[in-house]
Design a protein around this nucleic acid. Structure first.
Length: 208
DNA sequence: AAACGTTTCAACCGCCAAGAT
DNA sequence: CATCTTGGCGGTTGAAACGTT
């Protein structure tokens, strides 16, 4: 007999990337029962994941109102402004960017903004007139600004480096910017890797 | 075409605070 | 009041994607 009965009863916990099946289980469960008490939700839904993992997956990826990709220049300004104000309070910053998650903002900051901040000569956004010009360009830009999982069908956008946008004002006319939008082909990734359009397409097909 | 380096981002980890028991 | 559970947060990691040579 197992000297540690608890151990033998421990449910195997899955880690790593979520499969489409797991995503669907979670989406369907929350659609039927709502969010809350993530540990028991994970068990009740039959997911071999921790409550934490389920919560994270839902909040950062599966929620219908999650916006993905294309941090707009306006959003970047806001992130920079709020970060100056509050520091690494990502969740607080995220609350001011509807549809954006703290994780996404944190990643964006670290990979796109912070990196460039180490190269001060390239930064030019302190110039007031440049900022106004950029705001104008940004507002006239046809970049999608409110793409969410809810209307996410068929196309996924590869995020522009809007820092490059700021650093190369002349190079980024609105037209050129549009050309920078790289449309990825629908996912044909193997087995366990899925795009959200796959998931939500399935949901629609399922009539959910 | 292949090897190698770099970038991106989903997911995990550890810590903390709040609420429940 | 002490302990446990849960949720939330920020930091970090590692694999995949992408770019360069």
């Amino acid at each position: 007999m197992d000297k540690n009965p608890c151990k033998s009863q421990e449910v195997e916990v899955r880690k790593g990337p979520w499969t489409m099946e797991e995503d669907l289980i979670l989406i369907n469960y929350i659609a039927n029962h709502g969010e809350g008490v993530w540990n028991s939700l994970a068990k009740a839904a039959g997911l071999k994941r921790t409550g934490k993992s389920c919560r994270l997956r839902w909040l950062n990826y599966l929620r219908p109102d999650v916006r993905r990709g294309n941090i707009t220049p306006e959003e970047q300004f806001l992130i920079m402004e709020l970060h100056t104000k509050w520091g690494n309070r990502w969740s607080k910053i995220a609350k001011h960017l509807p549809g954006r998650t703290d994780n996404e903002i944190k990643n964006y900051w670290r990979t796109r903004i912070q990196k460039h901040m180490n190269k001060p000569a390239e930064v030019c956004y302190s110039n007031q007139s440049d900022c106004e010009l950029l705001d104008q360009q940004a507002s006239s830009s046809q970049l999608p600004t409110n793409t969410t999982n809810a209307d996410f069908m068929g196309t996924s956008y590869s995020p522009l480096s809007s820092f490059d946008y700021y650093n190369n004002i002349e190079a980024f006319s609105g037209q050129q910017q549009q050309q920078q939008i790289m449309l990825q082909s629908p996912s044909n990734q193997e087995d366990n890797y899925w795009n959200m359009e796959d998931i939500w397409s399935m949901q629609i097909l399922n009539g959910n």
